[in-house]
């Protein structure tokens, strides 16, 4: 049972988390033309790498979306960072 670091809550049991996606995929502007290939790549292509990976996860209890770096072989967690570009103006976190 792994321990994942929510950027807001700190380390929590893996049961509280849900995998969301691989990061770095930007939703195409669907008001313009998008080829079927580009749309399929956006929907379905995943790298599913061996070794260090970056993944978007959700901490289900606080709903924080964050990028976690971990090693898919050793299961070591290498770091986590909120998906937000800007943090709310608060000193507590």
């Amino acid at each position: 049972m792994q321990l994942f670091p929510c950027p807001f809550c700190g380390p929590r049991n893996e049961r509280e988390f849900h995998y969301v996606a691989e990061p770095g995929k930007t939703r195409p502007d669907t008001t313009g033309d998008i080829t079927a290939e580009d749309w399929a790549a956006y929907l379905y292509d995943t790298k599913n790498e061996k070794g260090p990976v970056r993944e978007v996860w959700m901490h289900l209890t606080c709903r924080e979306l964050f990028v976690m770096e971990r090693d898919s072989v050793t299961m070591d967690v290498l770091g986590s960072k909120t998906l937000r570009r800007t943090l709310p103006a608060e000193g507590a976190a």
């Binding site: 849900h18 969301v20 939703r27 978007v56 959700m58 289900l60 709903r63 924080e64 979306l65 998906l83 937000r84």
Partner: peptide, 10 residues
């Protein structure tokens, strides 16, 4: 959860 995903991502 789906709403939260879209809210925070995009």
């Amino acid at each position: 959860a789906m709403l939260e995903s879209w809210r925070q991502d995009g």
